[in-house]
């Protein structure tokens, strides 16, 4: 019972602290996830024209073309990291559970971790992530909310 209470308490603290971290990063995250728009984040950031919806030739995916109208908040490492987490969330989540995989390796690089600090970073991130998944709210979060949470965890660990 005591353990259960501690778990709830810890989860509560975790979720609250994630929110606080998020609030502290509000400007960046707002800029990244909302001002830029998720579609607008997925491109390597170059040139030209208005955004349009676009089916690729074989009907494979919907996308926007790259836009020149890119606010500074949408450029740089943080934006890349945010877009990467959102778009690859399922693959990152799976790799994080195993503690291994190419999507996790890429996340480490985008989080600017060196090979020397990689192991401890993955362990810490995995540990925090486990605590979040143990929280009763995790299953009710949508992809964007989960992405923001992982983004905030990485910010906190950096």
């Amino acid at each position: 019972m005591k353990r259960l209470l501690m778990t709830f308490l810890f989860t509560g603290v975790m979720v609250t602290s994630a929110s606080i971290i998020y609030a502290g990063e509000t400007k960046d995250l707002q800029g990244i996830y909302e001002e830029c728009g998720i579609g607008g984040l997925l491109f390597p950031r170059w040139a030209a024209g208005a955004s349009v919806s676009n089916f690729i030739w074989d009907y494979g995916s919907t996308a926007s073309t790259s836009g020149l109208t890119t606010p500074d908040a949408c450029k740089g490492g943080q934006a890349k990291l945010a877009a990467y987490i959102y778009k690859s969330y399922d693959s990152i989540e799976k790799d994080l559970a195993k503690g291994d995989g190419k999507y996790l390796d890429m996340l480490v690089i985008l989080s600017e971790k060196t090979p020397e600090t990689k192991e401890i970073f993955v362990q810490d991130l995995r540990s925090r992530f486990r605590e979040a998944v143990e929280g009763k709210d995790y299953s009710s979060l949508d992809r964007l909310e989960r992405s923001k949470m992982v983004f905030a965890m990485i910010q906190d660990l950096t």
């Binding site: 491109f43 494979g60 778009k87």
Partner: peptide
């Protein structure tokens, strides 16, 4: 109309290898 457009490859990897 059609256009060239750019993404990072992981976006295609997600769509083609992981979803389709």
């Amino acid at each position: 109309y059609s256009t060239y457009s750019d993404k990072l490859f992981y976006v295609h990897d997600q769509v083609y290898a992981n979803r389709e």
